[in-house]
Amino acid sequence: MAATRAVIGRRKGVGKARHEIGDTLLGRTFRVYIPVLLFIFITLFPFYWMAITSIKSDSELLDHNRNPLFVIQPTLDHYVLLLTKTAFLRWSLNTAIVAVVSTAISLFCSILAGYSLARLRYKGATAIGWGVFITYLVPPTLLFLPLAFVVAQLHLFNNYLSLILTYPTFLIPFCTWLLMGYFKGIPRELEEAALVDGASRLQAMTKIVLPLALPGILSAGMFAFTLSWNEFLYSLIFMSDQAMKTIPVGVTSELIRGDEFFWGQLMAAALLGSIPVALLYSFFVDYFVAGMTAGAVKG
């Protein structure tokens, strides 16, 4: 277990404060604070715009004489309509179910495959490793048509499973690759010691390797969760009932009507729809970064 602590200790050690000797406040202001503020501005301006749009009344939205950056008479109407008159909450629930389960499935497959490809030696392991990565080259735009055929044959249309089973196709490759790198970074001696002590391979894997790989698994999970939360095309094609749609599809199919965009509600939905994922990141962003580390470097 000493080695375990050593590994973790090393991770905590890096990325510590990097104040340099002779670094003045003025220097830091120009070198760090102002650029950071600029980044924040560029990144968040569209979000400010969404927020301000979502609290403007319809007539104010189309009033081009006023300064569009501010709102004169803020209103929560769009939020109220979105939450009470569309199935937004139901769409959120659907999105959450699909994202959680497809993430879990992807992690399950990726952990097993990543472990297998990174730590076991057998013929073809390398080739399969590449093969998994190369699946990203498959262009998704048209493949949804043959995929629709598969989904129909399995009678999964309008069923959570249609998304839960297809999302992993674009989640697994990255997760597997990330975890492969992570598993490689865990010293072999730890596992071999357990094997000598009479543990089976599977026990060694679940008891020794997986706990150590937790940051990597967390990162892969967050990555997968984000992508499945935002997916659009498959969800549009495979889900039909109003009550089965996910947020991106439900919102666009309900709030773009004929020749009208309901901007206020669309933007309200964009913001509300991002909050769960944003919260996830605000709590776990450092773990996410830490988890990417080993995987990325060893990849």
């Binding site: 969404m50 964009a270 944003a278």
Partner: peptide
């Protein structure tokens, strides 16, 4: 850090509409 990740985590169909 979390705030700067926002463009990546918002559904792109909605951010593109914005």
């Amino acid at each position: 850090r979390a705030a700067l990740l926002l463009p990546w985590i918002i559904p792109s169909v909605l951010s593109t509409l914005a």
